[in-house]
Amino acid sequence: MEHILAANGVVKQFAGHTALDNVSLTIPTNCIYGLLGPNGAGKTTLIRIINQITHPDKGEVLFEGAPLMPEHIAQIGYLPEERGLYKSMRVGEQALYLAQLKGLSKAEATKRLKYWFERLEIGDWWNKKIQELSKGMAQKIQFVVTVLHQPKLLIFDEPFSGFDPINANRIKDEILELKKQGTSIIFSTHRMESVEELCDHITLLNKSKKVLDGRLKDIKQAYKNNIYQVGLQVSNANKISAEAILNGFDYAGLEILPEENQINCNIQLPSAETSTLLNALSAKGNINYFEEKIPSVNEIFIKAVEENH
């Protein structure tokens, strides 16, 4: 199966406002799929529809090609953004309860929990009550509970919130490991650097509509704007000589380093054709670096949302 999940023309309305407006997307199997968008874009609603917590007014969601059914719940693991645990229940008991609700037998759940608790070095928490643990500790247990039933599709909503950098890295490694094992992952976050690091595909929702989706690499290619970063070594670097050299090109961010006799700037070309520029530059001096500027996810996010306004 090529796609773990596909949404076709999903519409969801709440009294007075539309949370999802004709959203279609396909989530490839075994990839990390970034679900991005500003606050209130409809991400949570979409995730809740995938989890069958709410149902779409129109459109359909297919799981491995079949319409979503209650049985699929056991194939999906969901770590919500707003998450908590029963405060007065013991860690082990609680994890067992949640695992059994996902359909695991008690024996199997115990075995897997022992494994995960050992793996994340939290084995001695088994008999502690949640109220005795810190927020980060509780987050770890929630992570374990989410992945314990080995679902085919995992949905993480801000999985790193509440973790210190060391534990955030631990969890990131676990997510990558799960992907390696063949799990498909939907990853929703506002932390763009982790999108950059983890995601293969992204979708951007804004104002209930999909504004962008595709492979992260392709999107970056699409959003690059023929801007090139140039470092040129010349015999005498000053403002006048630099402006003379760059005359005729659309440049910005001019930086002059007189001591190194270097000028740096970004040049905007009308097309991807670079030989004219390169020829012009190499005639004037030594090209220290010449690099196409690839936009960051952060920039793409802001640009796409602003364009959508």
């Binding site: 209650p70 919500p80 908590g84 029963y86 996902k102 989410t146």
Partner: peptide, 17 residues
């Protein structure tokens, strides 16, 4: 109310109706 304020409801509700 307890399930709501502790937010465990979010976790449980994806497993049961």
């Amino acid at each position: 109310i307890e399930e709501k304020t502790t937010r465990i409801i979010e976790i449980i509700i994806s497993s049961v109706k």
